[in-house]
Amino acid sequence: MSGHKILVVEDSAIMRQLLVMSLRRMPGVTVLEASDGLEALKLIANENLSLVFSDVNMPGLDGLKLVRMLRADHRTRNIPIVMVTTEGSAEDRDRAMALGATEYITKPVQAAKVVDTATRLLGL
């Protein structure tokens, strides 16, 4: 259970802190943070990531565009992406999943749910 890097992409400092705090409880996991899609892309280019948690609505590059870009790039095509969003409708979920999101979690989130999702997707 070591060597996994998880990126949290979230513009809300509160939500970002909540996700980071939850994920840092997992042993052997390094958590990186980005406040929008563009900052996330810069990090992704330099890091070997195992998992991405991303908000949908963000300034600059939003979460859905980020998913599309990661899926189009052969280097990041297989990184699991978990969307964390306030949008709870089935259409929003379907749209995100169709673009290539791996999981879809609606806010408000529970720390246990975040950890469970990460554990499952990382195969820990």
Binding site: I14, L18, A111
Partner: peptide, 30 residues
């Protein structure tokens, strides 16, 4: 964790607009 984060963020700034923004974020996200 939620209470800690909410408290931490609420008292992380002395900017009036930022405080209002943080309150909004707490209501939306938490």
């Amino acid at each position: 964790a939620n209470l800690y984060i909410a408290t931490y963020q609420l008292h992380s700034t002395l900017d009036f607009r930022e405080v209002l923004q943080i309150i909004s974020e707490i209501i939306i996200n938490l």
